[in-house]
């Protein structure tokens, strides 16, 4: 295909490798570009796109309205610093044109031309960075962050900054074992997917970086579909079904999830980057249009219900199929 697609389409991490979808431990090494029918994604662990300033501003607003989106149990202090001092250099390495990092001993200086900001902090001194290291990290990367502690043969979701949750609540889940976090997901426990994923994550070694994708659907370009704000966005799931604007309002929501073992703290860092593409945009790539229609039609009811797409998934499939 030689036509130039808009960046949002060309960079979209299309999540369906086949005509049907089931949960699987679909992890693969990170930092390897993936060719899709529409373009390429996946070169970096953190990524900066055209929505950077918008997403960062939105995160600040969400946090200001609800500080519980950033939660950290006291023992996760080292992990929070570890995440910050691991991911700022990642960002500096991929975008030296717009961010700059200078380090002298424990004093870090950080300049971000995309936001027009300069900051400096002292590694390990929580008071030297506004809101603490995790909040500062969230003001610099578009990704949501969850930090998992490893002990007693389990991983524990003990810290995070999540403003763009797909129908879950970090404030409620913080402190849970990995298996408990995934408690309500149908089909994943009996098939051993969660246990296998946890075993895999617990074996990650320092510097390891893996990724997987997950998906659902969202009405409008709404990144904050947390449980907390469900009263604000729940009705759109019903209203969109009969809306003539459905192909523009309904978005395939794909999370690119990166899994890193942090070196200093031994914590597992879980990065969640959310991409939204409307059905109309999706349909500009014929293979995506056809495959998404097939997946949505075939998806078992319990999985559709858990993803919250059961009201409109057949309408979406029908539009994509050209009906």
């Amino acid at each position: 295909m030689t036509t130039t697609l808009p960046p949002r389409v060309a960079r979209f991490p299309f999540p369906f490798p086949a005509e049907t979808y089931r949960y699987a431990t679909n992890v693969e090494p990170a930092r390897r570009p993936v060719r899709t029918a529409g373009g390429t994604w996946g070169e970096h662990v953190v990524d900066v796109d055209d929505d950077y300033a918008l997403d960062i501003a939105l995160r600040r607003a969400v946090l200001a309205a609800d500080p519980t989106r950033c939660a950290q149990l006291p023992h996760m202090r080292v992990a929070a610093w570890d995440a910050l001092t691991t991911l700022l250099p990642e960002l500096a390495a991929i975008r030296p044109d717009v961010v700059a990092l200078h380090r002298r001993g424990d004093r870090w200086q950080w300049r971000n031309d995309l936001l027009g900001t300069s900051s400096s902090f002292v590694l390990g001194d929580d008071d030297s960075v506004p809101g603490g290291p995790l909040a500062f990290l969230g003001s610099q990367v578009q990704e949501d962050v969850v930090l998992l502690d490893q002990r007693e043969g389990s991983l524990w979701a003990d810290a995070g900054l999540v403003t763009f949750a797909a129908d879950w609540s970090l404030g409620f889940d913080v402190g849970m074992r990995f298996q408990e976090v995934h408690g309500p997901v149908p089909r994943v426990h009996e098939s051993g997917v969660v246990a296998r994923a946890e075993q895999f994550l617990m074996r990650l070694q320092p510097g390891d970086a893996y990724r997987r994708t997950n998906w659902t659907m969202t009405v409008d370009r709404r990144l904050d579909t947390s449980t907390e704000t469900y009263p604000d966005w729940g009705r759109d799931r019903r209203l969109v079904v009969d809306d003539p604007a459905l192909p523009d309002r309904l978005h395939l929501r794909v999370e690119v999830q990166h899994l890193l073992r942090l070196g200093v703290s031994n914590a597992v860092c879980f990065l969640i980057r959310t991409h939204l593409l409307s059905l109309r945009e999706l349909a500009t790539v014929p293979e995506w249009r056809r495959r998404t229609a097939a997946v949505l039609s075939e998806l078992p009811d319990d999985m559709a219900a858990y993803k919250g797409i059961e009201r409109y998934r057949h309408a979406a499939a029908s539009w994509l199929a050209g009906g």
């Binding site: 090494p29 691991t86 250099p89 390495a93 200078h102």
Partner: peptide, 18 residues
């Protein structure tokens, strides 16, 4: 001094980078 830590080289799963 600019100190950008090296990203761990991509390896196949289980392989230990050196």
């Amino acid at each position: 001094m600019t100190a950008v830590l090296p990203a761990r080289p991509a390896t196949t799963p289980g392989e230990v980078p050196e």
